[in-house]
Design a protein around this nucleic acid. Structure first.
Length: 569
DNA sequence: GCCGTTTTCGGCCCGACTGTTTTCAGTCG
């Protein structure tokens, strides 16, 4: 797939052009790179089948970029890129990853000192060669060294599941300050993105300085990147950054809208503002100097001709158009889930007994809990047919003893290499439902993997396919699959696709959820809990479903027990 | 270089903080 390669080159061209002080073209190249990055089909395939006509209608790809793509597909290179690189042969990505270092500084350092990469940058800073340069200074040199130090320790993006609890804790600490009237987090965290770069807080306060002082002295702060009267930024010991912004009451809505993003969503909303003769910034929506809206997000969107929309939708993936036409989806709410069909007990690799899991699920207000221990996986102490039958007996007994929650008999069986299952049909038919999942050979070819999963779906006793692509964020890539084919099979055989709520899985991911929904395929949000605390992962699965525009009717564990059982039959 | 509910030409999102060139460019979100 050439899309990512090309996107990378266009981003680089954009950086170089910015370095040269060229106006607006960098924006154009980045826009084209964004388009390529999120493009599903292979650009090379499109070109092969339809020629450059196939690029028509792709946003941000016009005459010039089309030519560049053509050049790359034919020669493997883009001349302008080569020329720019030759002129300033530096590792821009590496250099500009250092906090405070952008393209201009990188260019100067190359021109004056010949610095091309991080290693040379560190060496020069240590030898105090940077401070005397025109435009640089002692502080800049020190910041470069600190930036490099933090860069080496930082882990990039963090899992939503790891960050959200920390952010909530900080939020409640800030909320306890008497100077703080209101505090929210914003950014990708409020949009519940699966990975988070940094945490952004937004505060209403009449005494911002006090809030700033408190914020930069929070436990865990190891570096203060910036601290002003209304804005501060810190690095936490865990390796991520936190930003805070204080705004007046009358601007809270526009500030929340602005800092929630996404960036693309903001650019789009600001364009709409401009087209209506308005200006949108974090302080409000203005006509000339007159404040039109700002206190609430609802007011801002309304003044732009839109209904308020859930933060999870704000990715400029059609939500703005939908809002303008009053066609926003009514996405699933965080309180709509009635139960959970994927969890493990100490019969396989879970930590708790079935009863303990049931009690914990009941405490969360669930109406039913499906026990779905592993089949036959040796590393997971998986069950064979005999043990499954015994477990069913135990679940029957527990159902008579426990009130307030119904236990369902399930299993997570393995889809073997050839698509068959590792538990016999005569036992499969005794379960209330069967989950099938791939747990081995994740790297087989796309066609083979697709066939493997489709074959499992054909089994009449399979209700749910677990964690479809097998990805583990930051650890294991998605298996290659033909999603369209799988969605067609799911529809045909009435198989439900799981949205696995484990923060490291979130599989189906948002864009796949949206495709499943559009294909009319039902989904279920499951925690895949291996201990009772994991039952709380449900929130992350719901978030992912919301990001995928899923509605209540798309998600079968929004059903009450009776309706669910009818559906599973 | 791209694009059009004002436009095929003339725009392209907007503001805070830092450090240094002491008035603002560079960087970031």
């Amino acid at each position: 797939m050439k899309n990512q390669e090309l996107a990378k080159i266009f981003y680089e061209i954009a950086d170089y052009l910015e370095m040269e002080g060229v106006a607006f073209k960098p924006y154009a190249y980045r826009k084209a790179a964004d388009t390529l990055e999120s493009l599903e089909e292979d650009i090379a395939e499109i070109y092969k089948n339809k020629g450059k006509k196939g690029f028509e209608g792709l946003p941000g790809i016009g005459k010039g970029i089309t030519k560049a793509i053509e050049e790359y597909l034919k020669t493997g290179k883009i001349r302008i890129h080569q020329q720019l690189k030759k002129k300033t042969p530096i590792n821009l990505g590496e250099m500009s990853a250092v906090e405070g270092m952008g393209v201009k500084k990188a260019q100067k350092l190359y021109q004056k000192l010949g610095i091309r990469n991080l290693k040379e940058l560190e060496k020069a800073a240590r030898a105090h060669k940077i401070a005397p340069l025109f435009g640089f200074g002692e502080k800049t040199e020190k910041n470069i060294l600190e930036g490099i130090k933090f860069l080496k320790r930082s882990k990039g993006r963090f899992l939503l599941g790891d960050i959200l609890p920390i952010a909530r804790e900080v939020q409640s600490k800030l909320g306890e300050l008497k100077e703080v009237e209101q505090v929210n987090f914003s950014g990708s965290l409020r949009r519940m993105k699966e990975t988070i770069g940094d945490v952004d807080f937004l505060v209403i306060s009449k005494n911002p300085v006090k809030v700033m002082d408190f914020f930069v002295s929070l436990p865990g702060v190891v570096k203060i990147w910036a601290k002003g009267n209304t804005k501060a930024s810190v690095r936490m010991a865990a390796g991520f950054d936190m930003d805070i912004r204080v705004v007046p009451h009358k601007s809270f809505g526009s500030a929340l809208q602005y800092f929630t993003g996404s960036k693309e969503h903001n650019i789009a909303t600001r364009r709409i503002a401009i087209s209506r003769g308005l200006k949108l910034n974090e302080y409000g929506l203005f006509r000339g100097k007159k404040l039109v809206a700002g206190q609430t997000e609802e007011g801002v969107y309304k003044a732009l001709g839109m209904k308020w929309m859930e933060p999870e939708l704000r990715e400029n993936q059609g939500e703005i158009e939908a809002a303008l036409e009053n066609k926003l989806p009514k996405i699933i709410g965080y309180q709509n889930i009635q139960g959970n069909l994927h969890c493990h007990s100490d019969w396989s690799d879970g930590k708790q007994t079935i009863k303990e899991m049931a009690v914990a699920a009941k405490a969360l207000g669930h109406e039913y809990l499906g026990i779905s221990d592993h089949a036959k996986l040796p590393i997971a102490n998986g069950l064979n047919e005999k043990r499954f039958i015994r477990q069913m007996g135990e679940i029957d007994k527990l159902n008579k003893k426990i009130t307030g929650i119904k236990l369902l008999k399930g299993a997570e069986v393995n889809i073997l290499e050839n698509g068959s299952l590792d538990i016999k049909d005569e036992v499969l038919k005794k379960f209330d439902y069967v989950i099938a999942g791939v747990h081995s050979r994740f790297k087989m070819g796309k066609e083979q993997m697709t066939e493997r999963i489709v074959k499992a779906m054909e089994n009449p006793y399979v209700n749910i396919i677990a964690h479809l692509t097998g990805r583990k964020i930051g650890e294991r890539d998605e298996s290659q699959i033909d999603l369209d084919k799988i969605l067609r099979a799911a529809k045909e055989y009435n198989v439900i696709l799981e949205i696995n709520a484990q923060p490291i899985r979130l599989d189906l991911k948002d864009v796949n959820i949206r495709k499943a929904k559009e294909a009319g395929v039902k989904m279920i949000i499951n925690t895949d809990a291996h201990n009772k605390n994991h039952l709380k992962f449900m929130e992350f699965g719901i978030a992912q479903a919301r990001r995928g525009w899923a509605e209540k009717k798309d998600i079968i564990n929004c059903y009450h027990l009776k309706q669910l059982l009818k559906f599973l039959k």
